[in-house]
Design a protein around this nucleic acid. Structure first.
Length: 755
DNA sequence: CATTATATATTTTTT
DNA sequence: ATATATAATG
């Protein structure tokens, strides 16, 4: 290929395979990119390459999995090809943008609200009640999930009803159209609509399809293995006239099947696009040989898999570690202490560490361990802040301002703070609104016409409507000023300020932070409206809130870890029932997805990898035996086992207190229920990789040499990490207690048993 | 209507 | 164990 432009800077540091992917010209391209093979880099370079070769930035569309990834790619492209603003976004953001831009052509109001799962379930509940099916057999969550799945498969309500066979599906078939009606009446879209409606429009409206196809001549999609049918439809229909579709993915990292993702999309790409070029990137640049080998051996247990060997030129590195703890608390503490020690030893910074787990619930014990040891951390869960009650309340006002039809937000805001408007009055108002086919806010404006509502409720509704009308006149204010105004006019701020409740003081601070968040948004996007602000919040993914600059330990779910990398990785609770999760048990394909999830977590690690499990784990307030994950058995032999729970005989660990509380039943748990799948290990098997690790070999009966007191025998060891104390009896000096971290001791040997 | 007490369900993972 | 939903009470 002869370039008439300067591509040297884009290609110099790439392998031939990577270069081929970057410089591929017209036509479909499938890049099978193994974990750590530099796929983000390739996709970014490719965009820059296209720009330098003369493709107009407006003709390029790049789809990433998170908004954060989209922002980063935008910045990198900007650096490689200055002055070019390419459209990079997630599928959902793309859908929202298309719907706002072309919605009116399709019959939608552009100021629609995006409903999250919470909102969705409330609508489902309402639709369920209205359907007359009140046997409470199926939860709104379950029905909502089924509707979501239907939309992902592009099934319309009648189509779904036609294919429904069992009672559950028939129920969903009844609720689905009612649900849709309520969404449209509220001028709202759920997450799935953002894909479903554009996909349908591209399918049905050839004029629009051809227009967008020509606009997005080059489409690039990252994490293609996790696209669903609706997303596939969008990609395909944007690539009919201009089939320059470039998809990047790794079937081994497909972890969203439960959300409707179809691994077939990537496996069948060559069939869908017969002239597709396929490039495989198998070279790993991220992990040590030890880590990559362990991950490869694990994933090789998946039967439904095209075999693929990942190779790396990186050094062998330390063996992968399997850590055994007494219980969840010890696990949390043990990991935090290890990290602290590693940082203290100067080997790593806090930000080099990440802790992953299968379920969010496990972050609780970690949180207290971090606080206890003064280790900085961030729990990467993007929406958590906006999901607090007080912030949701305030956001409900904003959503209602942006979209007066928004039922859910009206119901949330109308009596918070209390305005004397109760359930009965609201039922009457809803009946009136439904009858008149108007929104709830509009109905509140006509409260005088509703004879059944009187007294406090009537004045409350009238005042609420008047206040919202006044606020709506200020809709053009920058987001943060609008938030401040809402806080003031609604009385929400006053309510919190006048409260004597301590928690309300915190809530006040939180809504204050909401103003700050809005201000930051405004500064970053000066042109944007309140609708954009709300959209960004709703479509934010967990990692979008991650601060990767700060020096702290990152804590997140395995799902959130996709696409990231860290020098040191800990995976918690690698136990049967959690990883693989019990809900996947019995279904081989779901077990395989769990294995992929484990694989994703492992392959995030660059230098050190620790897979942890505990002998006892608390679940719903109950203590249960935990069996090490079958995945651990599938690892190669050269992993390193270390059982820190061995300390239980010497140390007064948290487990002892716990066991004492639980009583004799659990006293000899170690010898009964828990059947270690892992070969039994001796404490001496463990060689700390970091200096001053909590396991310094100090145990009762160990003979030590002290600088001042001479030879002594350890009589007690307690606590962990910096708090670890060691009691030593010195002949002639009596018993002394030291902080294990601080005291200088030389281990001389072990006293004979009984001595 | 609002507040409080009791019952009940809830836990996978997420745009 | 905790959070939410419903029922009972003021």
């Amino acid at each position: 290929m002869s370039e008439s432009f300067d591509a040297r800077g884009l290609l110099a540091d790439l392998t031939p395979d990577q270069q081929a992917a970057v410089t591929h010209g017209e036509g479909p391209l499938l890049i099978l990119a193994g974990a750590g093979s530099g796929k983000t880099r390739v996709i970014t370079r490719r965009v820059a390459y296209l720009l330098r070769s003369g493709v107009r930035p407006s003709n390029i569309l790049a789809i990433t999995f998170t908004n954060k990834a989209a922002g980063e790619m935008k910045n990198r492209v900007e650096k490689l090809a200055p002055g070019n603003r390419v459209w990079v976004s997630t599928f959902h953001s793309l859908g929202a943008r298309l719907l706002r831009q072309y919605g009116e052509r399709l019959g939608f109001d552009r100021n629609f609200t995006i409903y999250d799962m919470d909102d969705r379930n409330k609508i489902v509940k309402d639709a369920l009640e209205a359907s007359g099916i009140d046997n409470v057999k199926f939860s709104p969550e379950r029905i909502g999930g089924a509707i979501s799945k239907a939309k992902n498969q592009l099934l319309t309500p009648p189509e779904y009803a036609r294919t429904a066979t069992d009672f559950f599906q028939k129920t969903v078939g009844t609720v689905y159209p009612l649900y849709e009606k309520r969404l449209r009446a509220a001028n709202a879209m759920d997450f799935d609509d953002l894909l479903y409606l554009p996909a349908m429009a591209l399918k049905k409206n050839e004029e629009l399809r051809a227009e967008l196809d020509a606009r997005f001549k080059y489409v690039l999609i990252d994490e293609y293995q996790d696209t669903n049918s609706a997303q596939y439809e969008i990609a395909k229909r944007l690539s009919l006239n201009y089939d320059n579709l470039c998809v990047v993915g790794d079937p081994d990292q497909s972890i969203y099947k439960w959300r409707g993702s179809d691994i077939k999309n990537i496996l069948d790409f060559e069939r869908d696009f017969p002239n597709a070029r396929v490039i495989t990137l198998a070279q790993n640049y991220r992990s040590t040989k030890a880590i990559l080998h362990a991950a490869s051996v694990l994933i090789d247990h998946n039967k439904q898999r095209k075999k693929k060997d990942l190779v790396t030129d990186n050094p062998q590195g330390d063996p992968v570690n399997i850590l055994t703890f007494d219980n969840g608390l010890d696990e949390a503490e043990g990991v935090v202490v290890r990290i602290k020690e590693a940082v203290k030893a100067g080997a790593y910074k806090y930000r080099d560490h990440a802790i992953f787990m299968r379920i969010n619930a496990l972050t609780r014990s970690l949180e207290s361990a971090f606080v206890k040891h003064g280790v900085p951390f961030q729990i990467v869960k993007g929406l958590a802040f906006f999901e607090r009650k007080e912030n949701r309340d305030v956001l409900a006002y904003l959503r209602l301002l942006a979209n007066p039809q928004d039922t859910i937000s009206f119901l949330r805001a109308v009596n918070e703070p209390a305005r004397g408007i109760g359930k009965v009055s609201l039922d009457r108002l809803q009946a009136f609104a439904a009858d008149q086919e108007i929104g709830l806010l509009a109905a509140a404006g006509q409260v005088a016409r509703i004879t059944e509502i009187k007294g406090k409720a009537a004045t409350g509704l009238r005042d609420f409507h008047r206040m919202m009308t006044d606020l709506r006149a200020r809709l053009d204010l920058p987001p943060h000023e609008l938030v401040s105004l809402v806080l003031e006019k609604s009385g929400y701020e006053a309510m919190l300020r006048d409260s004597t409740d301590d928690e309300d003081a915190e809530r006040l601070a939180n809504v204050g932070e909401l103003v700050t968040a809005a201000k930051q948004f405004h500064e970053a996007n000066p042109e944007s409206t309140i609708t954009d602000f709300l959209e960004q919040i709703t479509l934010a993914s967990d990692v979008d809130g991650w601060d990767e600059q700060a020096d702290h330990v990152s804590v997140m779910t395995l799902h959130a870890s996709k696409g990231l990398e860290f020098p040191v990785v800990y995976v918690l609770a690698v136990e049967e029932g959690l990883l693989p999760h019990e809900r996947s048990m019995g279904r081989e394909d779901e077990i395989e997805e769990e294995r992929r999830l484990c694989f994703v977590g492992m392959t995030r690690a660059m230098k050190e990898l620790y897979l942890c499990h505990a002998r006892l784990r608390e679940f719903r307030g109950q203590l249960n035996y935990a069996i090490p994950s079958s995945f651990l058995q599938e690892l190669p032999r050269d992993v390193r086992y270390s059982d820190t729970s061995m300390a239980r005989n010497q140390a007064r660990s948290a487990a002892d207190e716990w066991r004492a509380k639980v009583g004799p039943a659990a006293k000899d748990w170690a010898d009964t229920g828990a059947r270690p799948v892992i070969p039994p290990k001796k404490p001496t098997d463990y060689k700390p990789t970091i200096p001053d690790a909590p396991e310094t070999g100090l145990a009762v009966g160990v003979l030590v040499q002290h600088e001042e007191f001479g030879l002594g025998t350890v009589t007690d060891v307690s606590g962990y990490g910096a708090l670890r104390r060691v009691k030593i009896r010195f002949p002639g000096h009596g018993e002394k207690t030291f902080v294990a971290d601080k005291v200088k001791l030389k281990i001389v040997g072990r006293k004979k048993a009984g001595g």
